[in-house]
């Protein structure tokens, strides 16, 4: 029948799209358990040797630790600055604030390569090449729009009379911000913090441009791993990251329902 042919066509299409999205991710799973010493599917049996390698190799552990603490510092800086920016714009809510908002989200619009080139030229001048401060600064700039956008979203439905109410009740501007606006923005700040962390944690283009030896992050180590040795530990790291993401997502979903 005509209708069912139509249906089959679209169902097949939908499954193909899902396979296209998920298979590349799933393929790392068997590779991570391979018993070979190069990237490939398991030959004789499954092995945990590459996981063991990850957890014992100081290079991998150091790179992971760097990504984590850089990510946390970036998320903190971006949350403070982005929240302050969003709350300021919310208070003004005039033309200038609109323009400022657009300017702030340009890091999302500009191609990463172009941006990284900019960082490179600039960081050379400032002497920030291959320093943790340089990476933190660059990542904070990249993560800022995510924080401010999610704080804007949290504030968008907030009654504009709230600050007036607080002031008429005796609160100064600062007290109003602390007691009334920041608590209302808190869900947005939390979301922004997580986003900022993720942005920093898996950022690679910028890191490749502005670091050499001194700073080693997890994405950079994975990248270099594929370049010059075909160590399956990469697959083990990737699998661990996927599992972590799944757990975090599951917790998020469960907490919401």
């Amino acid at each position: 029948m005509h209708v069912s042919a139509f249906k089959i066509f679209f169902q097949t299409g939908a499954w193909l799209v899902i396979a296209f999205l998920v298979l590349p991710i799933l393929v790392v799973l068997p590779i991570s358990f391979t018993d070979t010493s190069y990237i490939g599917l398991p030959k004789e049996g499954l092995s945990l040797q590459h996981y063991a390698n990850y957890f014992t190799d100081p290079d991998w552990l150091n790179a992971t630790w760097t990504s984590v603490w850089v990510g946390l510092v970036v998320a903190t800086c971006a949350s403070v600055l982005g929240t302050a920016f969003a709350i300021g714009c919310w208070f003004l809510s005039d033309r200038a604030a609109m323009v400022a908002r657009w300017i702030l989200i340009t890091p999302i619009l500009v191609p990463p390569v172009v941006q990284s080139l900019g960082f490179y030229r600039f960081w050379v001048k400032l002497g920030l090449i291959d320093t943790h401060v340089g990476v933190i600064l660059a990542h904070t700039l990249l993560a800022l729009p995510y924080v401010s956008i999610s704080v804007f979203a949290a504030l968008s439905n907030l009654d504009r009379n709230l600050p007036r109410a607080a002031r008429s009740l005796g609160a100064s501007v600062m007290q109003t911000v602390w007691a009334v606006v920041v608590p209302a923005a808190r869900p947005g700040i939390a979301t922004g913090f997580i986003f900022a962390f993720i942005v920093s944690f898996d950022e690679i283009v910028g890191v490749l441009f502005i670091t050499v030896r001194n700073v080693q992050t997890l994405p950079k180590m994975i990248w270099e791993g594929i370049q010059d040795n075909i160590d399956p530990t990469i697959a083990a790291v990737a699998t661990l990251l996927i599992v972590l993401t799944l757990i975090a997502t599951a917790i998020g979903v469960l907490r919401r329902t």
Binding site: L158, D159, N161, L162, R164, A165, A166, A179, V180, P183, A184, R186
Partner: peptide, 10 residues
């Protein structure tokens, strides 16, 4: 105020 303007987090 017309819209009450109660502090939503308190």
């Amino acid at each position: 105020f017309q819209g009450y303007a109660l502090f939503p987090t308190m």
